[in-house]
């Protein structure tokens, strides 16, 4: 099962390696990991997408909690939550493809943020599925580069991860 784990961690050098090292040392999967400081610069918020059985996810949260610099851990995928990922995708835009790319961007409510004679850079935000669908819709032969941020997640409504 796929899980989205959010955590607050001290914004100190080496904190990221403690988390990533834990995953590799214990053989857990990381599908994506994003991290950046929060409104309180002494703290970072991390979103980890992982897969595993219930037992493994339980161990992952326990092991993360055990890291001295980790302040709080929540599996936000246990209930209603929102996930977003940012993608910057550079595509070939010549001839008839140029109009087609523009149309595709409109359909997916993406934005073209850089234009040259031969290419567009398209910015698209959404959940993983939407981004995957866009990539599939364009087709590999027109894609020059794909850059994805990995997922950011937040619980809906009253569910707040805060110190």
């Amino acid at each position: 099962m796929r899980h989205v784990i959010s955590l607050l961690i001290e914004n100190e050098s080496g904190a990221l390696s403690r988390v990533s090292g834990l995953f590799s040392a214990r053989g857990y999967n990381i599908e994506s990991l994003t991290v950046a400081p929060t409104e309180d610069a002494s703290m970072s918020r991390m979103t980890i997408v992982t897969t595993g059985s219930d037992d493994i996810i339980e161990q992952i949260t326990k092991q993360l909690n055990k890291l001295v610099e980790v302040i709080k851990v929540v599996d936000i995928s246990e209930s209603a939550h929102i996930e977003r990922e940012l993608m910057l995708i550079k595509v070939r835009a010549t001839g008839k493809d140029r109009d087609e790319m523009k149309r595709m961007a409109d359909i997916f409510r993406a934005r073209i943020i850089d234009v040259t004679e031969a290419s567009y850079v398209i910015e698209l935000t959404g959940n993983q599925g939407k981004l995957d669908a866009f990539v599939a819709a364009i087709g590999n032969e027109l894609i020059l580069e794909t850059v994805r941020s990995g997922i950011c997640g937040v619980g809906r409504g009253d569910r707040v991860l805060k110190v």
Binding site: G14, S17, R18, G21, A25, E69
Partner: peptide, 14 residues
């Protein structure tokens, strides 16, 4: 040293 010992300490500091 902090990197080498990270997986085998409770915590470490530089």
């Amino acid at each position: 040293t902090v990197g080498i010992t990270r997986p085998c300490v409770k915590h470490n500091f530089l």
